[in-house]
Design a protein around this nucleic acid. Structure first.
Length: 890
DNA sequence: AAAGAAAGCAACCGCCATTAT
DNA sequence: CATAATGGCGGTTGCTTTCTT
């Protein structure tokens, strides 16, 4: 059987350390059972020391995630001495609880195995209260909270005790009749709360962990079909809850919207469209409950002028994109007299009927539904001269073309604007408006251009970039747009002066496998039917700004050789050369000439670091932004003020936020600081990894502190990637790192050593590349092992340590899987550890993990999130996998 | 180091439909 | 049949953690 060291269990998931796992005799289940002894003190001294130190170091942890400690200290299970409540006159007080008097149970938590004693609710005991006045979790389960009628109902996070009560009750009585739970068990929770808790967390058939790639794709597909029918979607995803899906989707929408990425993959548009059309009217585009409303959650714009303007831009941008999509033809190009867009022969007739007021009113729905993915273009063209809403360019035909949509075309809000109009808000616009200070005043186009042209090098911006993709700043938008233009130019064979600055580097890296679905996204066509560059050039007004505008773009030419060299460095792994340049990367490479203040040397790293690492991106296949860029913003945060978020429905996080965005964002926007990558870390990759790592740390912490949770294996792949980061490892004394993971120090140190020679340019393997081949993987693994060998030999590895390792206690590997499979770092088994349980001065610090183990972890980590179908492994690797207890689950 | 922003998760709220009385 | 109770569902909020500035 496969074994791993016992301390790994502690490292990965402290709360699931079962002492019996160290029993010399384990049952087939890997646990002590009948007939097997269960040693009480099986932990080695060093482990105990470390446990104690870690506990002391991390301090108190909330009993429930997201719930702070109350005024009392954590009280472990047990009986407390209580005394009866008495009134002022000394008489016994009746309990407020309307609970039966015969309920007393000893319950066992299904996940933690903890025994929870429920205080017997006799007529005497129910009037008890702790002598010290502290609230215990047990009592929280039956008391406390708001008063509902004559029953005190509790709100807030559930405790383990409450969960136990609920689980026990449902196990005995089945689901339903939720209000009876409160009546029968004294659980101070309303029936609704019980039902939700059960359905979302306690149900045994719940599927824990992150959404798989397939699930994510299914969610996207289902949402395209159903809209916000979370419950229906959940029905299609066994083990998943509507709440989970909803949260996932909302997060996804926010993230992608901020990044200016399509909510739906371009290919899904067609799919959903085709699927919607025939069978379900509720899903048709005439339905106002179409999913597209989610795509623009930042509503309730308080700046009418910009709202109208924004609507205008979005509308056109969507059109532009649509025209570029063979499946999504602009419904009625006649509304744009000068449109060069070819009328698509396959255009569905029901797409648009201007004469039908109903349909015309929902035209924006359609546009959103199909254009949503093309918001980046909308952003890009926000201030493009061709789309100056104040111009009469479209006014002549717009109203006639869209009788129900004149609001959009006029660029002005209207009292008669349809409901959807309130939804049509782009977050970045709000941000930039705030940045410019006067949200109620339309941005003077010419002035804005001047201002933008005067911005520093990497802050230089075209008028278009204020609505840049990713909302990350002007520069990003410039480069993004430049990239788009170049790509479009390549595809459409239209020569533009703007695109001339971009050589085929970008094209090389972005012209991808057509099956990836990236192409439709990067091949925008203007609302007028032009490709982006064509439109950009031809539509540039002759007001004098065009010269400035064009003047910038050639400077955006990225250094070819640098880019290619960078790409070549990754070529051994990334044989498909899918290093796509995202906007922010392009921004750093393609430093505009007009830049002056900020040298490009301080800019973002080569784009090869920005390979999209997430499953989401691979799933959607429409993104060209790296993780950090897409997420919005650790590199370039969105500048949308908080109040905008609040207006969109999200509550303000603080009074400060509620009062309005603090000017920092605006200031940051003004100086474009958010576009400057961190110097401390090579921007994108490390940032993304850092984010992933911190996220994982957070989850790890939660798992440690919340014993009723099974470990969340979400982002398993990210774990490894994140662990490669060396940034924060130096700072192992920080509170966060120390408290977050009891083994973080050692993990970090070891991995730090492991990755010591790796620079940002030497990423071993690109997990994000969905198309990496077997050779890629094997090569990467070999490289990894090779590097590891060299380091271990030179610095850390020692035979005594290895011998010691072999003598250590082992537990079955499936235990690790059960508790937390993704973390296995083993340097804590050093034969000589200092008092901190770590190798110190004078202590050797062995790297005990053999290459094979690394490979195993490496692969398994990948395989949990990335289907092995994506690549094939060689026999050895497959053998490794097949030996794992979780092999069947991969 | 501190403050604030963002992400993520969990839970609540309110509406509505269904069911029970 | 009317009303209340119950439960489902979608939207929103509360809170913590992490990261950035």
């Amino acid at each position: 059987m496969s074994f791993v060291k016992a301390n790994v269990i502690y490292d990965c998931y402290e709360s699931i350390i079962f002492d019996d796992q160290n029993s010399p005799k384990l049952s087939d289940n890997g646990k002590a059972d009948i007939g097997f002894s269960k040693p009480e003190n099986s932990k080695p001294r060093w482990l105990k020391n470390r446990l104690d130190k870690d506990k002391a170091k991390s301090g108190r942890k909330p009993f429930v995630p997201n719930q702070p400690w109350r005024s009392s200290t954590k009280i472990k299970s047990g009986w407390k001495k209580v005394q009866q409540k008495r009134d002022l006159s000394g008489h016994k007080m009746k309990s407020k609880l309307n609970i039966p008097h015969n309920y007393a149970q000893t319950l066992k938590d299904t996940y933690t195995g903890k025994t929870v004693k429920v205080i017997s609710m006799t007529s005497d005991s129910e009037d008890m209260m702790p002598m010290n006045g502290e609230d215990s979790p047990l009592e929280d389960a039956i008391d406390g909270g708001n008063v509902s009628g004559n029953v005190s109902l509790k709100k807030g996070p559930w405790t383990t005790a409450e969960d136990s009560i609920l689980v026990d009750y449902v196990t005995k009585h089945g689901e339903g009749n939720w209000n009876a739970i409160q009546k029968h068990t004294g659980l101070a929770r309303c029936g609704k709360s019980c039902r939700l808790r059960w359905a979302n967390h306690l149900r045994p058939d719940l599927k824990k962990g992150a959404f798989t790639l397939e699930e994510e794709n299914l969610i996207i597909e289902l949402h395209a079909k159903m809209g916000n029918k979370w419950a229906k979607m959940a029905a299609e995803l066994p083990g998943r809850t509507d709440n989970e899906i909803k949260n996932y989707w909302n997060t996804r929408v926010k993230r992608r919207q901020r990044a200016g990425l399509p909510i739906y993959p371009p290919d899904l548009h067609v799919q959903s469209f085709n699927e919607n059309q025939p069978d379900d009217d509720s899903n048709s585009f005439s339905s106002m409950e179409a999913p597209h409303f989610d795509l623009l959650p930042y509503n309730n714009l308080e700046i009418p002028e910009f709202k109208g303007f924004d609507l205008n831009q979005q509308f056109y941008s969507g059109d532009s994109k649509l025209a570029g999509d063979p499946y999504l033809t602009y419904p009625n190009e006649s509304c744009f007299p000068s449109s060069h867009s070819p009328k698509h022969p396959e255009r569905p007739e029901y797409f648009y009927h201007g004469s039908n007021p109903v349909v015309s009113n929902v035209t924006p729905d359609f546009s959103q539904h199909h254009y949503d993915g093309y918001l980046p273009t909308a952003h890009s063209f926000q201030f493009s001269p061709a789309y100056d809403y104040s111009s009469n360019y479209y006014n002549g035909s717009s109203s006639s073309a869209f009788p129900g949509s004149h609001v959009i075309l006029n660029g002005k809000p209207s009292s008669s604007e349809p409901a959807w109009a309130m939804k049509l808000e782009l977050p970045s616009l709000q941000t930039e408006m705030g940045s410019w200070g006067s949200p109620s005043t339309p941005l003077p186009y010419l002035e804005s251009v001047d201002t933008l042209i005067q911005t520093p090098p990497n802050e230089l911006c075209t008028p278009a970039c204020s609505l840049s993709p990713g909302n990350s700043g002007l520069l990003d938008a410039v480069l993004y747009e430049s990239q788009i233009m170049k790509i479009s130019n390549t595809n459409s064979h239209q020569q533009t002066s703007l695109a001339s600055g971009l050589d085929d580097d970008i094209v090389d890296t972005s012209s991808q496998d057509p099956q990836t679905g990236w192409e439709p996204y990067v091949e925008p066509v203007s609302p007028l039917g032009h490709s982006s560059p064509a439109m950009f050039t031809e539509s540039t007004p002759s007001n004098g700004n065009s010269s400035q505008f064009i003047e910038v773009t050639p400077a955006a030419a990225p250094p070819r050789r640098k880019l290619r060299a960078a790409a070549a460095r990754t070529s051994p792994i990334n044989t498909h050369s899918r290093a796509t340049i995202c906007a922010c990367c392009a921004s750093s490479i393609a430093r505009p000439v007009a830049s002056s203040r900020k040298p490009s040397s301080s800019s973002t790293p080569p784009c090869i670091e920005h390979r999209p690492p997430s499953n989401e991106r691979r799933a959607t296949s429409g993104a060209t932004l790296c993780n950090a860029c897409e997420s919005g913003g650790r590199i370039a945060r969105p500048t949308r003020p908080r109040h905008a978020t609040s207006a969109a429905g999200a509550r303000p996080r603080s009074a400060t936020s509620a009062a309005g965005a603090r000017p920092r964002r605006a200031t940051s926007f003004a100086t474009h600081r958010q576009e400057k990558p961190s110097h401390a870390r090579p921007a994108c990759m490390y940032l993304a990894r850092s984010c992933a790592r911190s996220k994982e740390r957070s989850k790890d912490r939660r798992m440690r502190t919340r014993s009723d949770r099974r470990p969340n294996r979400k982002n398993d792949r990210k774990v490894l990637v994140a662990e490669e980061s060396t940034k924060s490892w130096v700072d192992t004394d920080s509170e966060s790192s120390s408290s977050s993971s009891s083994s973080s120090d050692s993990e970090q140190e070891e991995v730090h050593c492991f990755m010591a020679d790796q620079t940002s340019d030497d990423e071993v393997f690109d997990f994000s590349n969905v198309e990496f081949t077997r050779e890629d993987l094997v090569s990467a693994l070999n490289d990894m092992v090779k590097d590891d060998n060299s380091e271990g030999e030179t610095s850390t590895q020692s035979q005594p340590a290895y011998d010691k390792f072999n003598k250590m206690s082992f537990v079955k590997a499936n235990v690790i899987y059960d508790c937390f499979e993704s973390i296995t770092f083993d340097d804590q088994n050093s034969p000589k550890l200092n008092d901190n349980g770590k190798a110190g001065i004078g202590f050797s610090k062995p790297v005990l993990v053999c290459e094979k183990q690394r490979v195993e972890r490496f692969i398994v980590t990948i395989s949990h999130t990335d289907s092995l179908a994506h690549f094939s492994l060689n026999r050895d690797v497959n053998q490794v996998l097949s030996e794992q207890p979780w092999a069947g689950r991969v």
